[in-house]
């Protein structure tokens, strides 16, 4: 079994329901994110378009975060999920240096690394990840990539524009997008100006929560 994700960007309307469901399900601290939806505006008036990109860990088949972790806190589950053992993590942040997608954050309460686990605890009990359940448009598709009849496999087979982020990094992501343009998957394709960040002041507090 190889669990994977696909987001149909033509269906995503940027409501952030997945983001909120993830924070609530996993008690993600304020200022930290396992899943986020990025907004990019492009074009010139009156031809202006806003794009939404939900981003989470890709659970890469060849994960550099797993390789660099000195204590195996990041590890593979048999179903392909890249999980994290927070009790083992020493907080060296090497995984944050290795993940090319910025998917890992340092939890300010536990002082350990954390990230999306595809809701491994729910999946184990036969439930879908919280973000999939919360999505009102069905833009998030989750399932077994090794099973040709799964919805995700069929979605990938029938959408020739399916792509992953940064394929050149050789990480073999198990998180796909359909309907993606450069603004969705290439971080340098849009300029960043100060003032458009969520909770920016909370996000800069250093090591909140003690050891």
């Amino acid at each position: 079994m190889r669990l994977g994700f696909l987001v149909d960007l033509t269906l995503c309307m940027g409501c952030k329901a997945c983001e909120v469901a993830c924070k609530s399900e996993n008690n993600v601290p304020v200022g930290s994110w396992r899943l986020r939806v990025k907004y990019v505006d492009s074009g010139l008036y009156p031809e202006v378009k806003r794009s939404f990109t939900p981003m989470r860990c890709n659970h890469c088949d060849s994960a550099p975060c797993e390789r660099i972790c000195p204590v195996s806190a990041l590890h593979y589950l048999p179903n392909g999920i890249v999980d994290i053992d927070k009790d083992r993590c020493i907080g060296c942040a090497a995984c944050m240096m290795a993940c090319p997608y910025g998917a890992i954050y340092m939890d300010p309460e536990s002082n350990t690394a954390d990230k999306c686990t595809y809701c491994a605890h729910r999946v184990e009990g036969g439930l879908e990840p919280a973000c999939v359940v919360a999505c009102p448009t069905g833009a998030n598709v989750f399932g077994d990539l090794d099973e040709p009849r799964s919805r995700i496999s069929q979605y990938i087979a029938s959408h020739r524009d399916t792509r992953v982020r940064k394929p050149e990094k050789g990480t073999l992501p198990k998180h796909f997008y359909t309907g993606a343009g450069a603004q969705h998957v290439e971080p340098l394709s849009a300029r960043r100006e100060p003032g458009f960040e969520l909770f920016n002041r909370l996000g800069t507090l250093d090591k909140v929560g003690g050891p």
């Binding site: 200022g31 994110w33 986020r36 939806v37 990025k38 907004y39 990019v40 505006d41 492009s42 074009g43 010139l44 806003r50 942040a93 944050m96 240096m97 910025g102 954050y105 340092m106 450069a182 603004q183 340098l188 394709s189 849009a190 300029r191 960043r192 100006e193 458009f196 960040e197 969520l198 909770f199 920016n200 996000g203 800069t204």
Partner: peptide
Amino acid sequence: VADVPTLQSARVTLDVLHTGVM
């Protein structure tokens, strides 16, 4: 971005803060 004319107008309008120096 300035070097890529088609993307000159694209900008991030809502996102989380850049993690910064770890």
